[in-house]
Write a protein that binds this DNA or RNA. Structure first.
Length: 575
DNA sequence: GCCGTTTTCGGCCCGACTGTTTTCAGTCG
């Protein structure tokens, strides 16, 4: 039984206990265990087999350990089965509707015998819901509204799209008098690859004025909530944006609170509690004296708790907090560490801008080197290069290196990996290039065995330095190909090949958890934008963001090294 | 149900907004 399945059972138990009106702390204990299991790096089934104690999992005590073992070994949990019989089947689905919590779900179930969203909808339309105690026309209408929103709800949107909305809102609000520190917090600041909603925050002399300006933005299609210090709206496209405003002196604690993650904040607050401190978005209250201390910076806020500053990208409520307490957090990679882009297209294949324009843009970006990697000829659609055009481009690059100066332009290619794992360019041509990037663009639905044979053969080729966008997924929509990541990492280690962190917001591939694992194993990593136009060089910020989520330091990324050192760290140069 | 640099018992993260009340319960993030 997988961890995710175990977590689901305990999450259901927590819901059912809550519906039953059980002690809220007992419910919370179950919820805490669910979070622990979801973040566990090892399979519980394995631990049970090896006879390891489950008590080392945070939140697991005597009672829950017994339940987990019973569930894993027998596949069943009588307590759970019993609980389920106490309520109509499907009642927990009511909890999926925003605005319906355990109390309301229970009320609906006992008073109106509702056990599904369809039945609920009918009861609202029929007027029965509005007549319930402490309900009313407005509440019923809101629930109906939420049900409809749930039906047409889009999946989480890619980080890149969310960032565009943030930039637009920021531009429109920046002139509101007295507003300072406007910034996107939440999952945008933590660089999660997809975003559920956008959390913005700022400080102001007059919060009301900012809230008013915010809810009046032209892109706002609906105001969900609006109070003195916070508001929630829906913008065009159906995305929810929350804004919260506090006084200037409390910016640090607000930013910390609003950045999350929720799990991180819960652990931080529990920690504060043990130190006799109560944490909130307004600051830290000493529980003995009742005195509230405000924090203008996050550094000071974490410092008060005896913690190193924790970068937003790794605030997940896991190992980061203990590491920060011991002062052992790594210095994560930063934008300025990246010395060159290694995956760049020009108008010679499917890029928009010329080789010269791309080279100059890379120089303006502050890079020491850039590798030009147009497609090979198999990609007819992309106007891929054949042997002859590769030769021409090499000559063009030599000319540009004399002409531009201040940046070293390297010759390269994104060579296509064919269905049988052979490369779409003769070895002698590849051997003459500075850097060779290989990737898959077709046959993405192959089964794992065939896909792995294909990839393995390609990266075993001594000319291939980098294997690009390893899983070929696209955000949103295209699922990753059937790549066995652990096997890929081993092959990369064995052959000395580097894996790409593709920074394009529609790829982000490798993704954060893969990066974390690859780094742990010592696999060589590079970071590239896959730029198809000059402005795409800016994508590097997304790459840095997810690399930080994978706990990468500069030393873990080959193209953070100066040119000579970088070249000799590649497969061709290194062996 | 879990847990301990105050505690093996008595706590458990914190505050805002809404709708329905007439002081607050429920929900959310």
């Amino acid at each position: 039984m997988k961890n995710s399945e175990i977590a689901k059972v305990f999450s259901d138990i927590a819901d059912l206990l809550e519906l039953k009106g059980e002690n809220v702390f007992k419910v919370r204990a179950y919820q805490k265990v669910v979070r622990s299991i979801e973040h566990l790096p090892v399979e519980i089934e394995q631990m049970v087999k090896e006879g390891r104690s489950l008590r080392e999992i945070p939140g697991v005590g005597d009672a829950i350990e017994k339940k987990i073992i019973e569930l894993v070994t027998t596949g069943k949990l009588p307590v759970y089965e019993e609980l389920k019989t106490e309520f109509p089947k499907g009642i927990t689905t009511l909890l999926e509707v925003p605005g319906i919590g355990p109390k309301t779900a229970r009320l609906l179930s006992t008073e109106l015998d509702i056990g599904s969203i369809e039945e609920l909808e009918a009861a609202i339309v029929g007027g029965q819901v509005a007549r319930l105690y402490r309900m009313g026309d407005k509440t019923a209408e809101n629930i109906l509204h939420q049900i409809q929103a749930l039906r047409r709800k889009d999946q989480r949107i890619p980080l890149g799209e969310a960032m565009a909305v943030v930039d637009e809102i920021t531009a429109r609000l920046k002139d509101v008098p007295g507003l300072r520190n406007l910034i996107a917090a939440g999952s945008v600041r933590r660089f999660r690859e997809t975003i559920g909603d956008i959390d913005m925050m700022g400080t102001a002399d007059d919060a009301g004025k900012v809230i008013h300006a915010f809810t009046s933005l032209p892109q706002v299609t609906e105001v969900i909530a609006s109070g003195g210090t916070k508001a929630s709206v829906i913008v065009a496209g159906g995305l929810q944006v929350d804004l919260r405003i506090v006084e200037h002196e409390a910016f640090g604690s607000l930013l910390q609170y609003f950045t999350g993650s929720k799990e991180h904040n819960i652990v931080i607050r529990e920690r504060g509690r043990r130190q006799g401190l109560s944490l909130s978005e307004y600051g830290i209250t000493d529980l003995k004296t009742g005195w509230l201390e405000k924090y203008a910076s996050e550094e000071a806020f974490y410092g008060r708790l005896g913690l190193q500053y924790i970068p937003p990208e790794i605030r997940e409520g896991g190992a980061e907090i203990d590491m920060a307490a011991q002062g052992r957090l790594p210095g994560l990679v930063e934008m300025g560490d990246i010395k060159g882009d290694l995956h760049v297209h020009t108008s010679a294949s499917d890029g928009r801008d010329t080789l010269e324009a791309m080279a100059r843009a890379a120089k303006e970006h502050g890079y020491e080197y850039v590798v030009i990697t147009d497609h090979s000829k198999a990609l007819g659609m992309a106007h891929g290069l054949d042997t002859e055009r590769v030769k021409q481009q090499k000559a063009e690059i030599e000319g540009l290196n004399r002409k531009i100066g201040g940046i070293r332009i390297l010759s390269g290619m994104e060579v296509d990996i064919r269905a049988d794992g052979s490369l779409d360019m003769p070895d002698e041509v590849l051997a003459g290039l500075d850097v060779v990037v290989a990737s898959v663009h077709s046959g993405l639905t192959e089964g794992e065995e065939k896909m792995m044979r294909r990839i393995t053969r390609a990266i075993e080729n001594p000319n291939v330095d980098i294997y690009a966008h390893p899983t070929c997924r696209l955000l949103p929509g295209r699922e990753p190909a059937a790549v066995n990541m652990e096997a890929l990492f081993q092959t990369a280690l064995r052959t000395g090949s580097a894996l790409e962190i593709n920074a394009s917001p529609s790829r982000l591939d490798l993704k954060d958890v893969h990066i974390y694992r690859a780094r742990e194993l010592g696999v060589k990593l590079v970071m590239s934008t896959d730029a198809h136009s000059t402005e795409h060089f800016g994508f590097i910020r997304f790459g840095v963001g997810i690399a930080r989520r994978g706990w990468c330091e500069a030393k873990d990324i080959l193209n953070s090294k100066p040119l000579d050192e970088f070249l000799s760290s590649l497969k061709k140069g290194g062996v």
